[in-house]
């Protein structure tokens, strides 16, 4: 469920990035790299788990599924926070700079 949640986040971010490309004012690319990287790593985890459990891997207990979904949502939120911090620090639109340094008339 964590893998699935991250893959959906990666797909949505990639679509948003493509819509805004080639301009990257909102730095959505950062989110794409982060979610795709995590998705690939969790895919390996899933393959290893499937090798161990077999078909049972696809029948998780509802409680485990809910916990994994909760983890997936938390991972997506953490990714968004990392992206937001980078966006505000890089400030590609100059919004923070404009707010901090007002021009003298």
């Amino acid at each position: 469920m964590t893998l699935l949640t991250t893959v959906y986040a990666a797909i949505i971010c990639t679509i948003i990035w493509y819509k805004g490309a080639p301009k990257s004012e909102m730095k959505v690319g950062i989110l794409c790299w982060m979610y795709w990287g995590a998705s690939l790593m969790w895919l390996v985890d899933a393959i290893f788990e499937y090798a161990e459990l077999g078909a049972e891997y696809f029948n998780p207990a509802p409680r485990d599924m809910l916990n994994d979904f909760f983890l997936g949502l938390s991972v997506v939120a953490l990714g968004l926070i990392i992206w937001l911090v980078i966006l505000l620090m890089k400030d590609p639109k100059g919004v923070i700079k404009a707010a901090l340094f007002k021009k003298n008339k």
């Binding site: 964590t2 991250t6 690319g29 950062i30 790299w33 982060m34 979610y35 795709w36 990287g37 995590a38 998705s39 690939l40 790593m41 969790w42 983890l71 938390s74 991972v75 953490l78 990714g79 990392i82």
Partner: peptide, 14 residues
């Protein structure tokens, strides 16, 4: 780099 750092950060959280 971005794939590795980003993925590792989220995996570390897990």
């Amino acid at each position: 780099n971005k794939l590795l750092w980003g993925g590792s950060a989220l995996l570390a959280f897990e």
